[in-house]
């Protein structure tokens, strides 16, 4: 099945972006991985995804970048209708307390992971966030059972079934 959900990664240092993309390869069968080296770049990608009817399940964002910062970008996103339900995480070493609080309070930040990170940790968090997104926004969760958290998804299926039975 062709993936209709995307994970957008924004990080201005190429070596780090490469590492993130590699860590996410195991989700690649079901999710499109879109790398961007700046917020400007990311916005272009979002336009393209939008025009193709592809929704963004997860944003993974660095904070300190030339031009718009990650937190500013995420705050902007949460005001846009199409991205209100996308999960958002910061992957950074340079967000001070003020900025992080802003991200939590104004952008609805879902997770903060500090650099350097352990691959397993990132993958576990991503799996968790993608599972949440799918549970909240996707009609048919069955195809995601393999790559995401199957326990949670089966619970979701059961609950939905019971709702429709009522």
């Amino acid at each position: 099945m062709k993936p209709e959900l995307a994970i957008v990664c924004i990080e201005d240092e190429a070596e780090v972006l490469e590492s993130v993309v590699m860590d996410l390869e195991l989700f690649e069968d079901q999710f499109i991985i879109e790398p961007a080296t700046s917020v400007q770049d990311a916005r272009k990608i979002l336009d393209t995804l939008n025009s193709q009817g592809i929704k963004v399940a997860l944003f993974i964002c660095d904070h300190l970048m030339p031009g718009t910062t990650g937190v500013e970008f995420l705050v902007g996103l949460s005001k846009q209708h199409e991205f209100r339900y996308s999960k958002k995480m910061l992957l950074t070493g340079q967000a001070g307390l003020e900025d992080t609080v802003k991200a939590v309070n104004e952008a609805g930040l879902d997770f903060y992971l500090a650099k350097p990170w352990k691959r397993e940790k990132l993958q576990a968090i991503v799996r968790d966030l993608l599972t949440k997104y799918v549970a909240e926004n996707v009609q048919n969760v069955l195809p995601f059972m393999m790559s995401l958290d199957s326990e949670v998804l089966s619970d979701v299926m059961r609950n939905r079934k019971s709702l429709t039975d009522m």
């Binding site: 240092e13 070596e15 780090v16 590699m22 860590d23 070493g93 340079q94 650099k115 350097p116 691959r119």
Partner: peptide, 18 residues
């Protein structure tokens, strides 16, 4: 400087593991 080193270290650790 600690922040500055963080990025290359993250990439270094990742590359090494792979």
């Amino acid at each position: 400087v600690a922040h500055e080193i963080n990025n290359p270290v993250a990439a270094l650790e990742s590359a090494n593991e792979y």
